[in-house]
């Protein structure tokens, strides 16, 4: 069989293709918004408020007369930023914990697992509310709150993958070569669980976008004058019966955003984890 790169194999997966295209568009919009938006998002233009779709304002204007498309671009960027950093917090803390638990076993593992259970015991949104009410509502605190939730998720995935690798003969060979547990974890375990972690990261990213939208919607995330998809929804809800498009547009953006990342994650998982896809041929 001809060796194919993982990426080429993933591309032949239809849901991966759709997910990749969708995520790419969202990320591109977010990146462009950093340097350019069709209109400035901090200029109020009351005479033009609640504008409908037009050539100058593609998606109309909001209750302050700001261009909806520009707001959407900035909103996507801030939602993505929160979700990305939350994933980073979760992975940077959770993965080492999971690897340590698998390498040491014994009491260290027990402590890490109980710590995971402790975080899991609280519904995510409740703890996020606790954190943001303690430290004040802001995008940063929302990020930290979501990030803490990602820690046990990454720790579990890393530990689960690592445990099965620790029984393999090449790990024994590395022990015989005098490598310490930390060296083995970095050299042999981490690269071999990386694919599991990447898949988990894309899924947590989409959950992060959703969580950020939820927190902003109840006023505990991004604060005005900044904007995010959840905040746009919140601001639009007062006008929902008069101007439903105000809420439908950011709502639809959240749905498409989450679906794109989920499809990307599914496609990656199917490609990277041969146990799930490769139907045994014999």
């Amino acid at each position: 069989m001809a060796e194919q790169s993982t990426f080429a194999r993933a591309l032949s997966h239809p849901s991966f293709r759709v997910g990749l295209l969708g995520s790419f568009i969202f990320i591109l919009l977010a990146l462009i918004s950093v340097v350019w938006t069709p209109y400035a998002t901090d200029i109020v233009d009351i005479p033009n408020r609640f504008g409908s779709f037009s050539a100058s304002n593609w998606l109309g204007t909001d209750y302050l007369g700001r261009d909806q498309f520009s707001l959407l671009m900035v909103g996507i960027a801030s939602s993505l930023k929160v979700a990305l950093l939350a994933v980073a917090i979760g992975a940077l803390v959770g993965v080492p914990l999971g690897l340590m638990a698998a390498a040491q076993r014994g009491w260290l593992e027990a402590i890490i697992l109980r710590f995971n259970d402790f975080i899991f015991a609280f519904p995510a949104i409740i703890s996020a509310i606790i954190i943001t009410t303690l430290f004040g509502p802001s995008a940063i605190n929302a990020m930290v709150a979501i990030g803490i939730f990602n820690i046990p998720v990454f720790a579990r995935v890393a530990r689960g993958g690592a445990l099965s690798l620790w029984t393999l003969e090449y790990v024994d060979a590395a022990k015989l070569s005098g490598l310490t547990s930390a060296q083995i974890s970095l050299r042999h375990i981490l690269p071999n669980v990386a694919s599991l972690l990447i898949v988990q990261a894309t899924i947590q990213l989409s959950l992060g976008v959703l969580a950020e939208a939820g927190l902003s919607y109840i006023g505990l995330g991004t604060q005005p004058p900044d904007t995010s998809l959840g905040l746009m929804l919140k601001e639009a809800q007062s006008f929902f019966f008069g101007f439903p498009m105000q809420a439908i547009i950011p709502g639809l953006a959240i749905v498409l955003f989450v679906i794109s990342f989920n499809l990307l994650g599914d496609g990656l998982r199917d490609t990277l984890d041969p146990k799930l896809t490769r139907v045994s041929t014999l």
Binding site: Y170, A173, A174, L176, R187, H188, P191, N192
Partner: peptide, 25 residues
């Protein structure tokens, strides 16, 4: 030590040079 399973005794992500230099640690 030489192990039983010739497929499990090498890390699939490392090339043979990396695996063979490892004991020299």
């Amino acid at each position: 030590m030489v192990f039983q399973d010739p497929f499990g005794s090498f890390d699939p992500r490392l090339n043979m040079a990396q695996s063979l230099y490892e004991p020299l640690n």
